[in-house]
Amino acid sequence: MLMLTCPYCGIKADETELTPGGEAHLTRFGPEASDEDFESYLFQRKNPKGVHFERWRHAYGCGKWFLAARDTATLEVFGTYPAQSKAPPKRLLTAIRRKRPGWEGWE
């Protein structure tokens, strides 16, 4: 049972107040996209054992979607940040690299 801090309302929310939304930072491919790009957008997910960027919605709270960086094996949470982000914040990436030397990065 995780606890994640909603970056919008500052609440440390219980997992039962949230709904999960899968992998974060997907790039949408629309009608003009190639089969390969569309397949990768629609189906190919990272599913790492380790650092993962994922979407959560504060469904029982402010209703906002936010993003979290979390270790899927240890459940360590490195940070949460607004969904209106094209990439994880630099400070967060630095913090993760410090804790996980050799981490391959988020992209």
């Binding site: 609440i11 219980d14 029982y60 709270g61």
Partner: peptide, 22 residues
């Protein structure tokens, strides 16, 4: 509710789960 009721300040709106509803 899983919200920390002991720590909720006065005049603060805590949107949360109550039993099985929002």
């Amino acid at each position: 509710t899983p919200a920390d009721m002991a720590a909720l300040p006065l005049a603060e709106m805590r949107r949360t789960r109550l039993g099985q509803v929002a």
